[in-house]
Design a protein around this nucleic acid. Structure first.
Lengths: 249, 249
DNA sequence: TTATCATTGTGTCACAATCACACAATGGTG
DNA sequence: CACCATTGTGTGATTGTGACACAATGATAA
């Protein structure tokens, strides 16, 4: 009971220093075992899952809030983070529902009546993430994007909109490197593209195309440990990428 | 003075039934005389220009609010309208500035302290629009997109982000028809594309490409009145467009 | 009425990009 | 040390795009 009061006090303080009609929800993508993953949170004392999210401080840039929220959940500082849509349906959000899911009396709902949520999606390196829970949640872990359960509110919509945006981005901009470790093989990059786009790619053509961009730097070392010919490792060269972008304007 | 009090009363009522931390700004594009136009409003009693915008009613979908706001300014019902970004910098907005521009005492600012604005852009048929002012403005008219003056707040950023989005959309989706009358010639469509994209296009290749999509329906009639060979008129066929979209998934 | 001429509708050809497939080189395995 | 799955790279067919050409058209003006 003391613990509950402490938590409620903390929440009240959080709401006091935040905007009340706006929130942020983040779709955090990772890549592991040739599968696209999304970071989800389980609501305290329930088995309802939701996206990592949070509120915006009253004098804080929205973008800063998104970075902060993501930092709190993943422990990561510099990440690829992009706004993709503001979800503003009138009944998308329901504070009382969260209350009852958390085993709290819905008639004492302390969540805002209504909130518009700004959706951000992030691309992170799976192995670097240390998932952390927040006040409202018991558990934070990766879910395969093909196995996402029913989520709170409109969070399933948010995820599928994020996915659609991600696929379109992949089509006309090379951003997949953010999901891979610093050094990777071309096959790993190809598997990532195939997973995101949802269809197989020709190995030879894919490698030629990627190398033709000119911003992948082949390393001396090769990936060892495999059962066969050792492939080269590559690094994404941000500087050469800038040059590529300039030339393609 | 009576008039001022009446206006202030109306504004107060508007704020009371609206969300206070959120607003909507619309970039309305039109096409006239081979120029891309944007609809702007002049703030009451000043020569400061701004985008058409407004507030969201407390129980209203954000998208509905955007349509409503646009309807109020243009008189149009069905229009191409798309959300493109939420602008959330902390100091992007300044109620006191509007007060002083309107000749009102800034210390009695009744605008919200801070508002995040959701940006929408619209494509409309120029000739159908009947620009109307609102409470806060004296004048509402089209501006050539290349001659836009310094606007209030971050509205210049909003316009340029909308333009960037529009150009990208034009690259990979045929949406220009929304800016033209029901029946148009291929040259008119080409001029529109050239204006939006900012570079000339080959006439022959452009016509072949457009017709290859299969959703332009050639009319019996031709455009008369020109000094030379009369070109065919075309109509955008929404049904065939759906088929085209399905086949290109 | 008829020659004129800018514009339209359509065709050709070169070139670049993409796709499907092939094959030798490689490096761990048994 | 022969084997073999995988890698790195090459080739030819197909498709898409860009530059340019030319006859057909329809208003204009003698």
């Amino acid at each position: 009971m003391d613990e509950l009061i402490a938590v409620l006090t903390e929440i009240k303080a959080l709401f006091n220093r935040s905007l009340s009609e706006l929130s942020i929800d983040c779709v955090v993508f990772g890549f592991h075992d040739n599968q696209l993953k999304v970071l989800l949170l389980r609501v305290k004392g329930s088995n309802a899952w939701s996206l990592p999210g949070g509120w915006i401080y009253k004098t804080e840039d929205v973008e800063h809030a998104a970075y902060r929220i993501l930092q709190e959940r993943t422990g990561l500082d510099a990440i690829f983070l992009q706004q993709f849509y503001a979800f503003g349906a009138n009944q998308r959000y329901n504070g009382k529902e969260v209350m009852s899911r958390m085993g709290l009396p819905p008639e004492h709902n302390f969540f805002p009546e209504r909130a518009v949520s700004i959706g951000y999606y992030a691309l992170v390196e799976y192995s670097l993430v240390a998932p952390k829970t927040d006040f409202f949640t018991d558990e934070c872990r990766w879910w395969d994007v093909t196995e996402i359960p029913d989520l709170l509110f409109d969070h399933n919509d948010i995820v599928s909109t994020a996915l659609k945006t991600l696929r379109r981005q992949f089509d006309y901009q090379p951003i997949g490197f953010n999901l891979l470790p610093e050094k990777f093989t071309l096959i790993e990059l190809q598997k990532l593209h195939e997973t995101v786009l949802g269809h197989p790619l020709d190995r030879g053509n894919f490698q030629k195309k990627m190398l033709s961009y000119g911003f992948l730097e082949r390393q001396e070392e090769r990936k060892t440990g495999g059962a066969h010919k050792a492939p080269y490792l590559y690094r994404f060269d941000a500087e050469k990428y800038e040059t590529y972008l300039r030339d393609n304007e």
